[in-house]
C-alpha cells in the first residue's frame, strides 16, 4: 500500500506547487501583496517557489528506492511525471512579466 502512496507524491507535489504559484500570481495581480502588482518582488517569489519545488521534486527522485517491479517503477514514474509537469507548466514564471 505504501508504494501506492509514494506513486502519488510526485503529482501531488506538482499540484501543490501549481496552487502555490498560481495563488501567488493571483494575489499579486489583484494587488493583495502590494500596489505594484506583478512587480519584481512577486516575480522573485514565484520563481523562488518554482525552483524550490523543482528541488523538492529532485529530492523525491533521489529518495525513492531503485529496483525492478511495478511497485518500484510506479513511484519513480510518478516522481518523474511530477517533475516534468512542474518544469513545463510553471516555466512561464520566468518569462511572463505582466498580469
Amino acid at each position: 500500500m505504501r508504494w501506492l502512496g509514494l506513486s502519488l507524491l510526485g503529482p501531488l507535489l506538482w499540484a501543490l506547487l501549481f496552487v502555490a504559484v498560481y495563488g501567488a500570481h493571483g494575489m499579486a495581480c489583484a494587488g493583495v501583496t502590494g500596489p505594484e502588482g506583478l512587480g519584481t518582488g512577486a516575480r522573485l517569489t514565484m520563481v523562488g517557489l518554482w525552483l524550490a519545488g523543482l528541488l523538492a521534486h529532485g529530492a523525491l527522485l533521489l529518495a525513492l528506492p531503485h529496483g525492478a517491479g511495478l511497485q518500484r517503477f510506479l513511484p519513480r514514474a510518478g516522481a518523474w511525471i511530477g517533475l516534468g509537469a512542474s518544469a513545463v507548466t510553471l516555466f512561464p514564471v520566468v518569462l511572463v512579466t505582466s498580469c
Partner: peptide, 23 residues
C-alpha cells in the same frame, strides 16, 4: 496516473478568451 492529475490542471484552456492574466 499522469492523466488523472494533469487533467485537473487544464480547465482554464476553455476560458482563454475571457480576459484572464497572461501568466
Amino acid at each position: 496516473l499522469g492523466l488523472v492529475f494533469l487533467s485537473f490542471g487544464l480547465w482554464v484552456h476553455h476560458m482563454f478568451t475571457v480576459g484572464i492574466p497572461h501568466m
